[in-house]
Amino acid sequence: MKKCHVVYLVCTAAMIGTGLGAAPASAIHTTRVVLPGQSIQKAVDAARPGDTVLVTPGTYHESVQVSTPGLTLRGMGRHTVIKPSTKKTPANTCAEGGNGICVVGTTADKVEDVTVASLTVTGFARTGVLSKHTDGLTVRNVSAVKNGIWGIAQEYSVRGVFRGNTAEDNGDAGIFVANTITAEEGAHDTRGAIVEHNRLDGNRIGVTVRRLRNLSVENNHITDNCAGVFVVGDENMPKAGDLTVRDNYVVSNNRSCPKTERLPALQGSGIVLTGTEKVRITDNTVMNNAGTSPLSGGIVLFKSFVGVTGEHNEVSDNRLHANAPADIVSTETAGTNTFKGNTCTASKPSGLC
């Protein structure tokens, strides 16, 4: 096999002089290298499905909108930094919405198999990385820091993978996944979305899962937020749920955040379920989450603010310690939620440990 050394075009799987023949054209993709002072958006606009836009270390003042399927937008680590523009640039809807990177399809035509990786996105008024109407989006090794609302957010999408990211000091959730951000609708099936191995620190909420089904939140490190994990449903059908929160480290989420239109003041919430069904909370370490909010405690099952009861949720085999007002708190009246195999000291009401 002949090894290709090209700065702008990268040969992919080209078999030359081996008797196997040349690779088909569909197997040869382009890597478009962006240097400081150049436009990431121009490289994205020029890319075709399967191409890679490789952004070298430096600071880039722009918002980037992606709609090409199979595209990889990749930096070279945390020193590849995307910030809001400091001057007037050609407008796109991503920038106009106050977002850093947007991967956006339509209801009829989802953008498939896009990857955003290995860069920092910071300082945007709304969201660092926003995706809508995508299928198989991967966001990995991204640092989303000090964005106004969400670090990384997704809606109306399926099979998303959020792995190995760092979301710090964002105004609301570090990672926010939802059926839709604005409308009141029943829960959507994500077809196996995964939120795993992320570090979520200093946000209002570490991870928010809102009105979704069929996904997992696992092996995340969630500390120093006002609340660790929120799984939220409402009165619409189908209910949020049929998902797993597993093997997370949820410790000392004791920052204090003021109330909002939707939620009371938050402090000391580890994992909170409200208005859900068939959620499995298992094998998590939940410690030192303490506060006086109605949602404070280690693992909290809370009858939703619109009066929806959580049913058939399972809390099992978790390790809980030094959470206040208790390690396990339930204000639910349904008798179908189960608590078994947990290591904990105190519960409200008593008898749940």
Rank of each mutant, 00 (worst) to 15 (best):
H197V: 08
A43L: 08
G270M: 02
L73S: 05
S293K: 11
I222M: 03
N342T: 14
T274E: 02
R48H: 05
V53E: 02
D169R: 14
E314S: 15
E185G: 04
T292K: 11
T274C: 02
L35F: 10
L266W: 07
T56N: 08
T68G: 03
L212A: 00
Q38S: 10
A22G: 15
L215K: 02
R255E: 06
S269A: 15
L54D: 06
R213I: 11
N253R: 09
N323T: 00
A117K: 13
V279G: 03
P238L: 08
L263N: 07
R78D: 13
V300E: 02
T120L: 05
R210N: 12
L320C: 03
I222E: 05
F230H: 09
E155C: 11
G70D: 04
N313L: 09
I281D: 06
N323W: 00
G297M: 01
T134H: 08
L9S: 12
R213Y: 09
A265N: 11
P90D: 01
T345D: 15
D283T: 14
R163K: 08
S296G: 09
S63Q: 04
L137Q: 05
R191E: 12
V315N: 04
A144Q: 08
L212R: 00
L73A: 05
S85W: 05
K348V: 15
K132P: 00
T182M: 15
V232E: 12
H79G: 09
S256L: 13
V329H: 02
D234K: 01
L301S: 13
C94E: 05
H312R: 10
